Amino acid sequence: MARTAEEVLAQAVQELAPDTAANRLVPRIAAGTAPREAVSAFALEQHHVIRGDRRSFAHLAARSADRPAVAGFFTHLAGGETVALDRLGALTAACGLDDAAVRAYEPQAGCQAYPAYVASLALGAEPADVVVALTANFAAWAGYCATLSRGLRTHYGFDDAACGFFDFFAGPDPEGEALALAAVRAGLADGTFSERLARRHGRLLQEYELMFWDSLDGVSTAGWPW
């Protein structure tokens, strides 16, 4: 019996959900026990992550130009990264960092492995497979962002503007959900979708994201190379 796009996405989100105990930093920020330097490092690294992902999503949209249902999903994501980058400025400022600090910062390999892999997918993976992998990853990311938003308000004194970056990703995205379903339907219909590869991509995305958080968690034990 053929599987529907709804079933494919729901199963991917469920099966690729990360171990709740694997991410050490987010619970520490939620409890107010992580150093502020970890939040600053997050903001600085995200300046590179967001720009890299936006380029990758734009490239995936261009590769899918002959498949509007697929291209629409990635165009939506690229637009979202532009919004996120705009909101990131308030978070960076709340961390006491100015434009010069952002420009001078040298990103860490462990934090940039995720966008590097997304760029690799943008170059060579089947776009419909990437839709499923990203959807599963975004489900976990949204939960992290919701937790961070609450923790930063409660324990670090961040205001609504400073938390706007996290609120954006934590909030519902019905348009994105509809576009993801349309893209997967297109991949199922034309036979280009591979569930095996989609899950491989999704597993690696989750592992690279955990590498991002683990690298940030090192701020509390080894300091950060500003």
Rank of each mutant, 00 (worst) to 15 (best):
R3H: 09
T4G: 14
V8F: 07
A10N: 07
Q14Y: 05
L16P: 13
T20H: 10
A21Q: 11
L25Y: 03
L25E: 03
V26W: 02
R28Q: 14
A30F: 09
A34M: 02
E37H: 02
V39C: 04
A43T: 07
I50G: 06
G52T: 15
G52N: 14
R55D: 12
G79H: 06
T82F: 05
V83F: 00
C95K: 11
A101F: 00
V102Q: 08
E106Q: 15
E106M: 11
A109W: 03
G110H: 02
Q112G: 04
A113N: 10
A116C: 11
Y117P: 01
L123I: 05
G124Y: 13
G124M: 14
P127C: 02
V130F: 12
A139M: 02
A140Q: 08
W141L: 15
Y144H: 14
A146L: 09
A146I: 03
T147I: 03
T147P: 02
R150N: 01
G151W: 05
L152G: 01
H155M: 05
A162S: 07
G164A: 09
D167P: 00
F169T: 08
A170K: 00
G171Q: 07
P172V: 00
P174W: 04
P174E: 04
E175P: 05
E177L: 09
E177P: 00
L179Y: 03
A182W: 03
A183Y: 05
V184F: 09
A186V: 05
S194H: 09
S194D: 13
L197N: 15
R199F: 08
R200F: 14
G202D: 11
G202K: 10
L205F: 12
Y208I: 09
F212P: 04
D214F: 05
S215V: 06
L216Y: 01
V219T: 12
V219M: 05
V219F: 09
W224S: 06
